[in-house]
Amino acid sequence: METNGVHGDGHGIRLTQEQARSALADTEQVRASAAALSATPWPTWFFVTLTLYTAALPIMCGGMLAESDWLLPGPAWMGVMLAATAVYGVLSAVASKGWRERTGVALRYDVLPKRATVPLAIGLPVVLVGSALAFRSTGKPAWLIAASLAGVAASVGFHLTFVRLHRKTT
């Protein structure tokens, strides 16, 4: 029977510092290999999908919120937005299922530190929607293009971070 250094005498446990240190090192090694799996990046096709959706979001919001018709009628922008979001939702579910089956671990959203994810989770929606509102009040599409580029940069940045984390820990 394995003991991992535990010698029971019926009253207590005798474990040396070295044995405890060895057990902790063992868990750290396992944790690191599991963390590498959790940091597996999305497949390229979904990374491209996610990036395109993020890039299109401010444009679609801008079209929807524009005071007068911009490129397309307002209701058409609404239809484009709903269709794109529905397609993105389906592809996201397919990618998540494939990712879990490929890695064999649960999909976690806390792999990256909160100091990186929380500002982005708050800031990106503000930038995406804020740019549409700025476009509505100024009529300048540069706001939408800037927000679109910011979204692309965030998507690419996160993907590259996951690629680096995955390589570093495997």
Binding site: D26, E28, V30, A34, A35, S38, G104, V105, A106, R108
Partner: peptide, 10 residues
């Protein structure tokens, strides 16, 4: 250790 780090594992 693995399950704690991975959340859920096959």
């Amino acid at each position: 250790a693995l399950l704690d780090a991975a959340g859920e594992a096959e």
